[in-house]
């Protein structure tokens, strides 16, 4: 203790004990057990997310181990016949993956141009008033349940438009109807994330471009678009992963025949479509049907995980643009 201070003494208030009577630190305060407990609880809550991931991995992996004990991995990955319930069962996942690839591709064909167009319009052209009206509508579009989209794909797209109006050579279900409507479903996802990242481009960049004599289109395509590229790519990648994981639209409108789809007017079964459909059949825990569900689920999970990691890397790489 410095002598200077004991001479003057700090400005103590009556309800505080004087420094000299306290043996330990005068800053010890009261013990804050409550605070510690709360911190621990918060940490546990955050850890639940990790438990979820680990849970997913274990939940998918254990039945999959049982599955791959009976079906060789290579036969699963490269086999072209999917017939898990037949007497001469065959577990080649290629037909499911092909159907998934078709619906995803078709969805992107719709969603990328429409989503980007809407995003550019909202970010670069719309007046603030118009944007205030359009964005909530976009959000409502994003909030429509996929089962309703599925109903629309089957009853309107496939039945009314393709069969009744256009007389297309197609049956009760088609990959095309499911894929196109899925594209509409993804438009808001791509539009709103792309719009966010374009709106985040500093106004100074647009002004700089305009001051050089560029018109709006040039400014948009050559300045704003490249600057917002990481967000736009992330939006598309998220769109892909939503298309791959989408279940209800394909379960309703794509059909249940797991065959190699060569033409989008055919019916087909995606990975998610198979899981949804097989789960209806109330399979016994431990049976091969039950394990098959999880093997396909594992493949689906790994594919979306991979897509997502690519997206995260991409965003990281380009984030420091401005």
């Amino acid at each position: 203790m410095t002598t200077a201070v004991s001479a003057g003494g700090p400005a103590t208030t009556p309800d505080r004990p004087t420094p000299h009577t306290e043996p330990a630190s005068r800053f010890a305060g009261r013990p804050r057990y409550g605070e510690l407990v709360i911190r621990l609880l918060l940490r546990i809550a955050a850890a639940v997310t990790v438990v979820t991931t680990v849970g997913i991995l274990i939940a998918l992996a254990i039945p999959s181990i049982g599955f791959f004990a009976e079906v060789p991995v290579l036969e699963f990955l490269f086999g072209t016949r999917w017939a898990p319930r037949f007497a001469d069962a065959s577990f080649g996942v290629v037909p499911l993956v092909t159907a998934t690839a078709w619906t995803t591709l078709l969805a992107l064909l719709v969603a990328v141009p429409l989503g980007l167009g809407a995003a550019i319009f909202l970010a670069e052209y719309a007046s603030p008033r118009l944007r205030k009206v359009l964005k909530p509508i976009l959000e409502i579009l994003a909030g429509i349940p996929t089962v309703v989209y599925g109903f629309f794909a089957l009853q309107f797209m496939q039945t009314t438009v393709f069969r009744d109006w256009a007389n297309l050579p197609t049956g009760a279900f088609s990959v095309l109807a499911a894929g196109l409507v899925m594209g509409v479903m993804i438009v808001p996802t791509i539009a709103s994330i792309s719009e966010d990242s374009m709106s985040a481009v500093p106004q100074a960049m647009r002004q700089g471009s305009a001051a050089l004599g560029a018109n709006r289109m040039q400014t948009t395509l050559r300045v704003v678009f490249p600057a917002a590229l990481s967000g736009i790519v992330a939006a598309m990648v998220l769109g892909v992963s939503r298309a791959v994981g989408e279940t209800m639209i394909v379960a309703i409108a794509a059909g249940n025949q797991a065959r190699l789809v060569a033409n989008p007017l055919e019916a087909g079964q995606t990975m998610t479509g198979f899981i949804a459909n097989a789960a209806l059949g109330d399979s016994r825990v431990g049976s091969i049907e039950y394990d098959t569900l999880f093997a396909v689920g594992l493949l689906l999970f790994l594919i979306t995980l991979l897509i997502n990691f690519i997206s995260i890397r991409f965003v990281r790489r380009f984030r420091e643009a401005y």
Binding site: T52, G55, I56, A59, L60, L238, S241, V244, G245, E246, T247, T272, I275, A276, A279, L293, F294, G297, L300, F301, T304, L305, I307, N308, S311
Partner: peptide, 11 residues
């Protein structure tokens, strides 16, 4: 956030 919803069903 990017895991397909059906996987949560399997979990």
């Amino acid at each position: 956030a990017a895991v397909p919803s059906i996987v949560y069903g399997l979990l």
